[in-house]
């Protein structure tokens, strides 16, 4: 099996700061990490490889520092990594990103046919989850999003069965391979990487491709030019005026609160209360 995993380096949003004067994100304040969902995608690839053998190639688009995200994937157990990095890719939205990644994957595919492509459910800097399905559409392979379990891989028959999360439950889907899966975090726990992987990763130099290294690229579909969406204004989320504090002793606080809640009596009428 040849499994390709798309991975992105993202600023760690839990520590990112907003510059209050310009309302822009101070990216330098946040360390860059491997998108957490993508770590689970790589882990899943490792598990599939453990059962079926084969090879895992990660592909990433980003600035030169993104090789650190690729190294992290090598730690988890990926075999190879490719970074596509070029000024021409800068400012890409999801449509332009999926185009560039598709071109890179096509090149990887020429070297060795691909059975499965894995992506994260979404990247935590954009929260869109559009790149995976975009790649699938461009490569004319079926996308399956929100995968929480890979039930069965029949590599010889060229079929996979997966569990896909939906509201109120899940569905089991079967697809021919190659296909593209985007994975939820609950699909697995990323294992603590073995030391030999750590050493391999510390040494690892991924291939870095520029636009020139890719074949048949339509430059107008790349980067800012190839992106239909643009960011208009940005502003800090409205701060509410703050809570109206209910004063008094506990008894009276509770009485007041109940009368406030009961202004929404229809909520309770439907169910009759208990």
């Amino acid at each position: 099996m040849h499994i390709v995993v798309c991975v992105k380096q993202v600023p760690d949003t839990k520590v990112i700061k907003v510059n209050p004067k310009t309302n822009t994100l101070d990216r330098s304040s946040a360390p860059a990490i491997l998108n957490p969902y993508d770590a689970h995608a790589v882990e899943e690839a490792v598990r599939i490889k453990q059962q079926h053998g084969g090879k895992i190639t990660v592909v990433s688009m980003g600035p030169p520092q993104a090789i650190n995200a690729i190294r992290k994937c090598i730690e988890i157990g990926a075999d190879e990594g490719v970074l596509i990095s070029d000024r021409a890719f800068a400012g890409a939205d999801t449509l332009a990103t999926s185009y560039a990644l598709t071109k890179a994957i096509e090149k990887v595919q020429k070297q060795e046919p691909i059975d499965l492509i894995l992506c994260g459910k979404h990247a935590i800097d954009g929260d869109t989850g559009q790149v995976g399905p975009g790649i699938a559409r461009r490569m004319s392979i079926p996308p399956i999003t929100n995968v929480i379990k890979v039930e069965n891989v029949a590599s010889k028959e060229g079929k996979v069965e997966v569990r896909r999360k939906i509201e109120n439950g899940y569905e089991i889907l079967q697809s021919t391979t190659p296909c593209l899966l985007t994975v939820e975090k609950e699909i697995n726990e990323v294992a603590y990487s073995p030391l030999p992987n750590m050493i391999k990763a510390a040494k690892y130099e991924p291939a870095v491709w520029s636009v020139k290294d890719l074949d048949d690229v339509d430059m107008t579909k790349l980067g800012m030019k190839g992106s239909p969406t643009v960011v208009g204004k940005m502003w800090p989320p409205a701060k509410s005026a703050g809570a109206k504090l209910i004063e008094g002793d506990a008894k009276s606080q509770v009485k007041q609160l109940i009368s406030i809640v009961l202004e929404k009596r229809q909520l309770f009428e439907q169910k009759g209360g208990r």
């Binding site: 989850g129 559009q130 559409r137 461009r138 999003t145 239909p228 969406t229």
Partner: peptide, 20 residues
């Protein structure tokens, strides 16, 4: 789940922008 899946695929199918 389905709405996002469909919108992403359609955006690429008809080549337009999508805000999630």
């Amino acid at each position: 789940s389905n709405g996002k899946d469909l919108a992403s695929a359609v955006a690429t199918e008809v080549m337009t922008g999508l805000t999630a």
